[in-house]
Design a protein around this nucleic acid. Structure first.
Length: 256
DNA sequence: ATGCCCCCGTCCCGGGGA
């Protein structure tokens, strides 16, 4: 089973690209981030028409996450627990074919320091709690999405210039490592220990043309999932299309 | 030090993204 994560930067602006991806049979499960629309305005019918099922957690203008699949989706969580005052739509989780799968849009956190960075760190603490809870279920778990974290220097075209950025500073990485250290495996690095596998290129400064990218979209696997991991990679093709998202899909294949 | 580019919306500018 192939599981793919893609920050589409507006589902309405990217609808044709995403539909084409589904129609081309590129994946079995598609996790989306940055829908930038409400559940009511999500183009649900377009996907149902091609036989896909979907669960969305959207909001107006900003954020928004979704889980799309050819198989039945049993939603297990909408929104990230731990702060009742948090109204940002950044987490949805479901069970598909016995695998617990989360679509995650972790806060950016810039400018840093500041309230947005404080929100990012608090959100990461809440994600840690959820990740630990899921880990203890001893089932296959895939935590996937736009983590807005550059894990290591190898994941950045110019690490020095990102040193103090909210995506790469030590406090951010520490909290990301803490989640990994529960026992989750970075699927991309398990399959490809070395080399640049960027998932995001800025629209500005010709970043795509110069391959000035960063790896911030990740697939984290619990032991029950990682023992089934057979392949993982970044699909750079969608980033080169006209009217592309600034992110490109990352996928992993699990046996059965 | 700032903007570049792109998306959104009580919409032609400003907030947010990363």
């Amino acid at each position: 089973m192939r599981i793919t994560s893609w920050n589409v930067n507006s589902i309405k602006a990217r609808l044709e690209h995403v539909l084409a991806y589904c129609k081309a049979d590129k994946t079995d499960v598609l996790l989306l981030q940055e829908l930038k629309t409400t559940d009511d305005n999500f183009p649900r019918q377009s996907f149902e028409d091609i036989g896909w099922q979907l669960a969305t957690h959207g909001q107006k203008t900003y954020n928004g996450v979704a889980i799309l699949a050819k198989r039945p989706i049993q939603v297990t969580q909408v929104g990230l627990a731990g702060d009742d005052s948090d109204e940002q739509a950044r987490y949805i989780e479901a069970e598909i074919e016995g695998i617990r799968i989360a679509s995650i849009y972790l806060p950016n956190g810039n400018p840093c320091p500041g309230p947005k960075y404080d929100y990012k760190l608090a959100w990461m603490d809440r994600l840690f709690s959820r990740a630990k809870h899921l880990f203890n279920l001893e089932i296959p778990v895939v935590l996937a999405g736009d983590f807005n974290v550059i894990p290591h220097s190898i994941d950045c075209y110019d690490p020095l210039s990102w040193q103090e950025d909210a995506l790469f500073r030590e406090e951010t990485k520490s909290k990301f490592y803490a989640i990994c250290n529960i026992g989750y495996l970075d699927a991309l690095r398990q399959i490809h220990p070395k080399g640049a596998y960027y998932t995001f290129w800025d629209y500005q400064r010709g970043a795509w043309q110069k391959d000035n990218g960063i790896r911030i979209d990740h697939l984290l696997l619990s032991p029950e999932a990682s023992c089934r991991l057979v392949d993982c990679n970044v699909d750079r093709n969608p980033r080169g299309l006209e009217k592309a998202s600034d992110h490109t899909p990352i996928w992993c294949d699990l046996t059965i």
